[in-house]
Nucleic acid binder design. Structure first.
Length: 376
RNA sequence: GGGAGAGUUCCAGAGUGGCCAAAUGGGGCAGACUGUAAAUCUGUUAGCGUAGCUUUCGGUGGUUCGAAUCCAUCCUCUCCCA
């Protein structure tokens, strides 16, 4: 996998780049819609690609392993063919599920024993098995199996957890080296920097991780409850250590403002459920701020959903209509809101990229952040 | 014409002397959501600026220390039999 930097900007660590994957070129900064179960909920791939301009999407190892299962994915010839998405796919390792499904799992040196949230059946994930599963899935970018500790973890737990994540990382790379891709193209493995909100642990993790000469590096365990300034500080610390010539991926982040701030600090790749999940729950992101489309004030607003929007839905439907659909519980509401939000998120990073290339990112960002923080 | 029953806060519908500003559901209003166990979850929904006070359970009048609950009467509605 090749990554090339095309531009950086004065007074900022921001970068514009290009990532060449087996399934196509990704221009960075990039936002990657989350498609946990090999589907970005409610959106046809045609619309995902042509309307919302998604360049690469996520899928999830934990969820695909449980359903439909590795066998079906192998029979299909990998997840791309299974779900008919021809572009690049990144799979999360299930590390986040180990965190978010706490209560039905047990961590050991070997890996993580857990019970399926679907039927309660018992399973074991190890760094090796997770790499194997991602081989079977056929992701362009595989993620290392990590532990994502709670945001408020005490230092001793964070340190212990970090060491475990590092030992697991070595095992992930060993497994990667000793196995072959199943579908004829090379797969990349991204390590994940952890360390909670402890600066020295973050530095230690970034230094540990970069010795693996990976195709890209991820920053995990952020936006899990800590204040945004703390998150930004952690990004700054880590980005100083990570290699300049490789993409940096901030996992699970975030709000439009979070994303611009992270781009400013050198992050190239993002994913977040916010545009999709919040969209399904009636929240719209726009350049003028966020909208709760359920609010009564939109009841008779027959203006387009978003005059500045780049999606077909923005100009085809009115706010009053989308509110009606949302309040009525109509499934089309979720589809329209999701398309709008994804189109907005990709537009957000695309404009950021354009301003990086133009050299005025910093001033543009300052103005954008003010507007984006508003509630309409 | 005869008989039976019912009218409760936005709606449906509990409650049948004090623990009732009144269950529950719906609807309304608002909020949350950051590597998706989420088309989910939470709050609120008589008035006044909390404690507390004030006006509500078809209308009117009464019984009682006290009434949505008991009595009288009026109004409205539903069902059954002719």
């Amino acid at each position: 996998m090749q990554f090339s930097l095309q531009a950086t900007s004065e007074g900022s660590r921001c970068r514009a780049g290009e990532l060449v994957t087996p399934h196509g070129v990704v221009q960075t900064p990039v936002f990657m819609p989350v498609g946990t179960a090999a589907t970005v909920k409610g959106v046809l791939h045609r619309d995902l690609k042509e309307d919302t301009k998604a360049q690469i999407i996520l899928a999830n190892t934990y969820h695909l392993y449980l359903r439909p299962g590795v066998e079906i994915l192998e029979q299909a010839g990998g997840v791309h063919k299974f779900c008919s998405w021809e572009g690049p796919i990144l799979t999360d390792s299930g590390g986040f599920q180990v965190f978010s499904l706490a209560g039905c799992r047990k961590l050991t040196e070997e890996g993580c024993r857990f019970q399926s949230h679907i039927d309660g059946s018992r399973h074991l994930f190890t760094p090796e098995s997770v790499v194997d599963t991602q081989r079977s899935i056929g992701a362009d970018i595989m993620m290392a199996f990590d532990e994502c500790p709670p945001g408020d973890s005490p230092r001793d737990y964070a340190a212990k957890s970090l060491d475990l994540t590092h030992r697991w990382l070595e095992r992930c790379f060993n497994r990667l080296a000793n196995t072959q891709p199943k579908y004829g193209y090379r797969q990349s493995l991204f390590p994940i920097v952890q360390g909670c909100t402890y600066e020295d642990l973050r530095v230690k993790s970034a230094e540990f991780v970069q010795q693996f000469d990976a195709d890209g590096y991820a920053i995990g365990g952020l936006a899990v409850g800590e204040p945004a300034p703390v998150m930004y500080a952690m990004i700054e610390v880590v980005d100083k250590v990570l290699p300049e010539d490789k993409p940096r991926y901030l996992m699970g982040v975030g709000t439009p403002v979070n994303i611009l701030e992270a781009i400013d600090r050198g992050v190239d790749m993002f994913d977040c459920v916010m545009p999709t999940r919040n969209g399904r729950n009636g929240m719209l992101f726009t350049w003028q701020g966020t909208i709760n489309i359920r609010n009564e004030k939109w009841r008779d607003d027959l203006s387009p959903i978003d005059p500045e929007g780049t999606s077909m839905v923005d100009h085809t439907y009115t706010k009053a209509y989308l509110r009606h659909l949302t309040v009525s519980g109509e499934m089309l509401a979720a589809q329209i809101a999701t398309m709008h939000n994804l189109a907005f998120y990709t537009d957000l990073v695309r404009q950021a990229r354009a301003h990086i290339l133009a050299g005025d990112f910093k001033t543009w960002k300052e103005q954008a952040v003010i507007k984006l923080s508003q509630r309409l």
